[in-house]
Nucleic acid binder design. Sequence first.
DNA 1: CATTGATTAACAGGATTCCTGATAATTATG
DNA 2: CATAATTATCAGGAATCCTGTTAATCAATG
Lengths: 148, 148
Amino acid sequence: MSIKGDVMDESSSPSLLYAVKQVEQVVRARLDAVLRPHGATALQYTALTVLQHRDGMSSAELARNAFVRPQSMADLVSALESRRLVVRVKDAADRKRINVMLTDEGRAFLSACEAEVADLERTMLRDLTDHQVKVLRSALNSCRRSLA
Amino acid sequence: MSIKGDVMDESSSPSLLYAVKQVEQVVRARLDAVLRPHGATALQYTALTVLQHRDGMSSAELARNAFVRPQSMADLVSALESRRLVVRVKDAADRKRINVMLTDEGRAFLSACEAEVADLERTMLRDLTDHQVKVLRSALNSCRRSLA
DNA sequence: CATTGATTAACAGGATTCCTGATAATTATG
DNA sequence: CATAATTATCAGGAATCCTGTTAATCAATG
């Protein structure tokens, strides 16, 4: 009885593009399950965490950061605003720009999910050494940079 | 002028869940761009490559492998069938099962995309040593297994 | 052997996430 | 100043995800 997601395991040296996708798929599924009771999706959560690091980004910036079209991100931000997790604030210095800011509710939401998400990450990394985690992190960042 | 996708770079030790998602996002965008002229999406392509490795999987198996609900995969397979890239064949030994088989067209499609996709992967890994690639691969597989 | 449980496929409806195409306003550039 | 670049928004649509439900088939159990 095989473990889920192992059709193309190490034995067949599959594409690393595929390996990344597999991990992302299982993360997404697991994250969605964690977040659903809180009323959000994995992607929405991701956008919120980005804002947590750099509040006040424009929708266009968020889109670029996520490698999607501006409109895609605008729709996501719109949904977050509907849920009152963010507000959109006209930029004083640049009137065509609208900054996306976390609300207190948004911050509370992130706090509420934090433990479970951290648990998920801990589970994901449980069989890796500290060194492997370090290499993984820098390799992923290298991959992203090379394709960005 | 920052590189796209670097809001939470190494300097702030972000979630590895996020790092995976970032790479997946840029891969998906790049892969979509490569595949669009061929008339398919990154996800459809991924499903086809899985079948390339193990032809005749059922839709339910493909779903499990991809960590999505059966219906989600059924819809994707349905789209692939419409494009004649796969056929669905009743299983002789188990009449409730339908095996998804690559067509010649499906195979030809994969061949047509192969060079460009390989190029993409090469680009992704260009700044990594062989050793780092090796660690990356096994770490990703470990992550997947731990969450599956 | 009959019943129950598990698995597979499919229908239906809907939300989310992605894209393209287009328009308008604002800022940057030469 | 005119043009180019950037931002946001409207519109429409495809793809991808889910939940809920039903029916058929196989597996397990007593």
